[in-house]
């Protein structure tokens, strides 16, 4: 059996020695898409950052592809794990294609000159997300949603085995929310492991194989999304009453109770 793409054991994550969430033990296999759900401040992004080695775990351990996080060399890790950050604060004025090509950096020589393969991968990813028209546009002049799509494109251009997405659907219109998650899903079917922080339980229900629910500094539940996601548990997760409905296609939908 191959090692899980990501495995944590009794992991506690947080800042300055104070845990935001602790007791996280998950094993995420290649070919599965996990959604991390929880209220604001429940440690979802902190968890992703820690898994990526940007923050030190407070307790417990993280293994990526069977190897302890601390044993990974940065560049080698970047060839296997890609991250779509929540916000994009760097604004140096790259074009869309230049930004996406930076995702090829871990695969290139130290001086990062793109070869024909790098260019064709970057262009293919842009076409796949239907944003080829952003290739020559300056990123700082684009909308929040367009930047978001470029960050997803950059992460896909990185050709990772594990993809960590921090609110990939934020700022996106409905069509692009579904599109991004569909593209990720398609790669997951081909063996990618993906973890997406999501705020919309409906998207999680529609796209994720499994969910990790975080609340009040601990894991409220984890497992197959079909079993775990129901109105009661999600109500507990977000601290509000929810109703559940099923579409004729069998999709579950959740909405706050008392609206309309």
């Amino acid at each position: 059996m191959t090692a899980p793409a990501l495995e944590t054991a009794s992991l506690a994550v947080g800042y300055g020695g104070f845990p935001v969430v602790s007791g996280v033990s998950v094993a995420i296999a290649p070919g599965s898409l996990w959604a991390v759900l929880g209220p604001n401040g429940s440690g979802k992004s902190t968890l992703l950052r820690t898994v990526l080695g940007l923050l030190r775990p407070l307790e417990g351990e993280v293994r990526l592809f069977g190897t302890l996080l601390g044993r990974w060399e940065r560049r080698a890790l970047a060839r296997r794990v890609a991250w779509v950050p929540q916000s994009f604060d760097g604004d140096p004025g790259f074009t869309g294609l230049e930004l996406v090509l930076l995702g090829r950096a871990p695969h290139q020589g130290a001086w990062g000159l793109p070869g024909p393969r790098d260019l064709s991968i970057a262009r293919a990813v842009l076409s796949e997300l239907e944003i080829a028209h952003l290739a020559g546009r300056v990123v700082s002049r684009l909308s929040g949603g367009e930047r978001r799509l470029l960050l997803v494109a950059r992460a896909l251009a990185q050709e990772p085995s594990l993809l960590l997405l921090d609110e990939p659907t934020a700022f996106l219109d409905l069509q692009h929310q579904a599109q991004v998650l569909e593209r990720v899903r398609a790669r997951v079917r081909r063996g990618l492991a993906a973890v997406a922080v999501l705020h919309d339980p409906n998207l999680a229900a529609a796209f994720a194989d499994a969910v990790l629910l975080l609340r009040d500094g601990r894991v409220l539940g984890q497992g197959a999304s079909a079993e775990l996601l129901d109105a009661e548990r999600l109500g507990q997760l977000y601290g509000l009453g929810l109703t559940e409905a099923r579409t004729e296609t069998g999709h579950r939908l959740f909405a706050p109770r008392g609206t309309g």
């Binding site: 080695g53 940007l54 940065r74 080698a76 970047a78 060839r79 991250w83 950050p85 140096p92």
Partner: peptide, 14 residues
């Protein structure tokens, strides 16, 4: 170039 994106993004890109 990668650092100009921010430290964390640069780190995630190796």
């Amino acid at each position: 170039n990668l650092l100009s994106l921010g430290d964390e993004e640069a780190a995630s890109l190796g």
